[in-house]
Amino acid sequence: MNKKRSLLPDCAEAGYCCDKKQYDEASFLEKIKMLLHLAICKPCRKYASNNTKLTKLIEKSNLKPCPEEEKKMWKETIEKEISK
């Protein structure tokens, strides 16, 4: 049972591998397992395809992180102004 499960992962595990792959954190084995699952599971293929699209869109959008220290400063300024 255990062995079978490790060879053919379920949707949850395939999804987990697929997410890790988006951040280049999936191991070789995880990638193989995911591909095995995708070969037999249409909904997961759809998820994987959308997930990859999402990664590409985020890259393309070139979103910039707003610096945390600025956020903190703005919060303080706003609070100070309100309490005036």
């Binding site: 707003c66 610096p67 706003i78």
Partner: peptide
Amino acid sequence: PTKWVDKYSDYLFNYTIARVNDRELANDII
């Protein structure tokens, strides 16, 4: 206003940086 920073600062920041292309300036404007 107490929720402005958490809710909108990323949006405002990216909106501004696309237009002024300078972080410091963007921070001041926001």
